[in-house]
Amino acid sequence: MNDSLRHVRTIAKRELGGYFNSPVAYVFIVIFLLLNGFFTFKLGYYFERGQASLAEPFFSWHPWLYLFLVPAVGMRLWAEERRSGTLELLLTMPIEPWQAILAKFLASWIFLGIALVLTFPIVITTGYLGSPDYKAIFSQYLGSFLLAGTYLAVTEMMSATTRNQIIAFIISVVVCFGLILCGWEPVTKLMAGWAPESLVDLVKSLSTWHHYAAFQNGGPFLRDALYFVSVIGFSLFSTSVVLRGVRGS
């Protein structure tokens, strides 16, 4: 176990260093913060609302922001290793593949977490202007972080299917968009026209939409957290299956 943790840490450290060794990290963080500001103040009418809440003006944009930014962060995870041949190097080290899969996921998730934490001025601003519910803000941040992790895990799996980062990016955006859409009101209404209710509910429950919303209004529920964790777990497991196929051929 000790060895496993050491391997995970070693690989994760390299991955995280990889982001900050190149301009990718800084470009990403700047774009993320700029877009957040734009959405919150311009499209979210933060000041005009006159409410000490971040749910509507700030967090409601995250599913859409992440839809493009998270695949951009995760697309290289395996595609680049496959393209450059380092996959062979990595997987002939004395490690189990799951250690590399988990390490890569954690490194990128921590990176997304850093970007998310850097939005803290909006919390300070709100605290200065009014008296927000900090517990709610915490749970909203937690929901946002879990959502980012979910998109990231999906992207990691897609990244393992190809040597081409652009293809990994596009497929990931489409799949993540699907995860949002299947809980979106107009789509579920369309389905309700022909499908039995139980099927509609099932599809709805697979969507990130309602689980994310649960964190935004009224605090987190265990089953919503469980949803995110299980999608992450499933995606990482699928990554290991995909990689086994890649090595075999």
């Binding site: 050491r6 070693t10 990889g18 190149s22 041949g85 380092t86 062979e88 002939t92 080290m93 004395p94």
Partner: peptide, 28 residues
Amino acid sequence: VGYLPESAPSYPDMTVEGFLSWTAEMRG
């Protein structure tokens, strides 16, 4: 085993020392 794959891959964003240090750490 020590293995040199056919295309001699390594991580381009690392320094030579960083890369060797990383492989050393992976090897315990």
